[in-house]
Design a protein around this nucleic acid. Structure first.
Lengths: 191, 191
DNA sequence: TGTACATCAGTGAACGCGCGTTCACTGATGTAC
DNA sequence: TGTACATCAGTGAACGCGCGTTCACTGATGTAC
């Protein structure tokens, strides 16, 4: 049954990658080890060959989720043309595709209120992820960020996270669409 | 052991009221019936004399939480002096007291990402609560709301909810304070 | 108004279930010589 | 290079625990007469 080192390393990466999606779709507490290992095509017993605890997997999966969404926003900003970085980030963030695919999206919107109650290691990853996202939307090409750019990033990202979370929460599609469209329009025009 | 009708009705109200705080502090899933009944000074067994399910209590407690926070914001707006309703709402919402007392605060910030995955009855209450908050911050004295006022409310409330959620999540007090202060300053000045 | 009986608020134990974690085991991989 | 042995990735069962829900029971309250 033993797998080679490279196979085991690949297995570990697969567990983290699939868990990053499962956590964002179903929350941090709801999925059990059976769900998380099953998503990677494995059974529960092998979990502790790779991780010390479910919390450790959550922290690593969260970091991976941030990597993906930050790369996506960074790319959107790089291709922004003559728009502001914030406008490009808002377009990438506030749309139906992102709303309807939380497993590939921003973990701050997917897990925000649960992260506030999570353990120290998870919150540390979340804090670092928020910082990286703030740097990204404020235009990370500029190393000497101005205070105004930083404030604009704080306000804009807060609005994006709040709007996407509410757009997923409401049971009225019209209100959900309005949240995405109106906040996106505001960030495209007024800032 | 039987209690009088008025005592039973008072007990029911107490369970809903204390549960509204417990859910906001600890989340929708984490507290068990032991915790929820214990907070009201009761034991688990009596729960089903008052509620058909834990989900029903969650829906009623959430509605009560909205009532409280909307009354508070309404009062802040009524006493706003020459400031805009949004500025008054932001001051009431984005401060350390609210951040550090989720059990008495806005359920959208305390439970946002969990509400997006909740059952139909809970999501219906959440949707109604968001609508009521939007009406409140857009100045509910005006019955014929303009589209612009509605859009401003969408953007402002999204920013408030996102900023408060992030302020509770990050493990760095400086960043947490900055989120509250900078978004509040923006909503006081620019809108 | 008083009495007999029915009701039911609340208790505490029990139900089945799924959780995170542990462990004995299997057998292919890695290592020592 | 070949062989003998140690290692360990992954399995599946078991552990104790707490969950939401059910239920028999108690005894004060409510109701019928």
């Amino acid at each position: 049954m033993r797998k080679s080192r490279s196979e085991a390393a690949e297995t570990r990466r697969r567990i983290v990658r699939t868990a990053a999606g499962t956590f964002r779709r179903d929350g941090l507490e709801t999925p059990g080890l059976d769900d998380l290992m099953g998503a990677a095509g494995l059974t529960r017993g092998g979990f502790y060959r790779h991780f010390a605890s479910k919390d450790q997997l959550a922290a690593e999966a969260l970091a991976e989720a941030f990597d993906g969404v930050i790369a996506s926003m960074s790319a959107a900003i790089a291709e922004r043309g003559d728009r502001s970085p914030i406008a490009a980030a808002a377009d990438r963030y506030l749309n139906a595709t992102h709303r309807d695919g939380p497993e590939e999206g921003c973990p701050l919107a997917a897990l925000g209120s649960e992260l506030a109650r999570a353990g120290d290691s998870v919150r540390a990853v979340a804090t670092d992820g928020l910082r990286r996202m703030l740097e990204t939307v404020s235009g990370d090409a500029d190393p000497a960020q101005t205070a105004a750019a930083r404030d604009t990033a704080l306000v804009s990202l807060s609005a994006m996270i709040g709007a996407l979370t509410m757009a997923r929460m409401v049971d009225d599609p019209t209100l959900s669409d309005a949240l995405l469209e109106r906040v996106s329009a505001y960030l495209n025009g007024a800032i």
